[in-house]
């Protein structure tokens, strides 16, 4: 079984984010890393291919500046190969354009039985790209999966709901988005890291995918940011060091608020 996993390479979430004052997009000039949200999809894909007893995991990613380090991390976990779309024309792309590019890249990756994604990225978090990719590819989809098993030509998914979860069955090929935390992503081994360096990475441009520059990036985005402003800050509170009696401050505050 062949599984394609869409992964995003993002600025380290531990670093404070910044907006480019001109373009009003997230500054991505520093080193990018594999979005932790995507490590669950990669792990899930590796387990499913293993359970199927054959096939491979292919990564698909769109990133600026030929960025590969996040892809190498996922290759080191065990993915076989990757397609990277990197092109200056992609700057300013919105979620819909991103989905169009990813759908083309998935096609280039070969016949996929299953496409996995995260539920949302940690930097843009629109949470719409998985469904968009499915719609563009004309595929059924199941979002917010907490477990996935493949049974012949169908996928069985436990899908998160407000109340609990639904069992959902869906014929393959399909797109499934994986909820963070549902599997334990493996750490790349030293052998894996060394092997990842020579795994095939197919780097392509927008033109290679048969898209025109005018369809993507700023030109393709049907929305524009018109204002950026500071949000109203909360008033500074009282911060005290616990001297063994810190709990009493909490009790007093709760009493003052008439909660107790």
């Amino acid at each position: 079984m062949n599984v394609v996993v869409c992964v995003k390479q993002i600025p380290d979430p531990a670093d404070p984010g910044a907006l480019d004052p001109e373009s009003k997009t997230l500054v991505r000039s520093g080193k990018l890393i594999l979005d932790e949200s995507d490590s669950y999809g990669v792990e899930m894909a590796l387990q499913l291919v293993d359970a199927a007893g054959g096939g491979e995991v292919t990564l698909v990613s769109m990133a600026p500046n030929d960025e590969q380090s996040g892809l190498r991390t996922a290759l080191a976990m065990g993915a076989a190969k990757a397609v990277l779309v990197s092109d200056d024309a992609l700057k300013g792309s919105d979620a819909l354009t991103t989905a169009k590019v990813l759908a083309k890249a998935i096609g280039r990756a070969g016949d996929a039985d299953l496409v996995l994604t995260a539920t949302e990225s940690s930097d843009g978090y629109t949470g719409t790209v998985p469904e968009m990719v499915a719609e563009i590819l004309g595929l059924p989809s199941v979002t917010f999966a907490k477990s996935i098993t493949v049974d012949g030509s169908a996928v069985k998914v436990q899908r998160q709901t407000e109340a609990g979860y639904d069992d959902v069955e869906c014929p393959l090929p399909a797109v499934v988005s994986v909820t963070a935390g549902v599997v334990e992503p493996r750490y790349p081994s030293f052998k894996g890291i060394m092997a990842a360096k020579s795994k095939p990475l197919d780097q392509v441009t927008v033109a290679d995918l048969g898209l025109e520059a005018g369809q993507v990036g700023w030109a393709g985005a049907g929305q524009e940011i018109i204002e950026v402003s500071e949000a109203e800050a909360r008033e500074a509170g009282t911060i005290v060091e616990d001297d063994g009696e810190g709990f009493q401050k909490v009790v007093d505050f709760l009493a003052e608020l008439k909660v107790i």
């Binding site: 499915a134 004309g138 595929l139 059924p140 069992d167 069955e169 014929p171």
Partner: peptide
């Protein structure tokens, strides 16, 4: 094909 997913069971936690 896009409408092919079916809910077979619902669980309330």
């Amino acid at each position: 094909a896009t409408g092919a997913a079916v809910v077979t069971n619902r669980f309330v936690e």
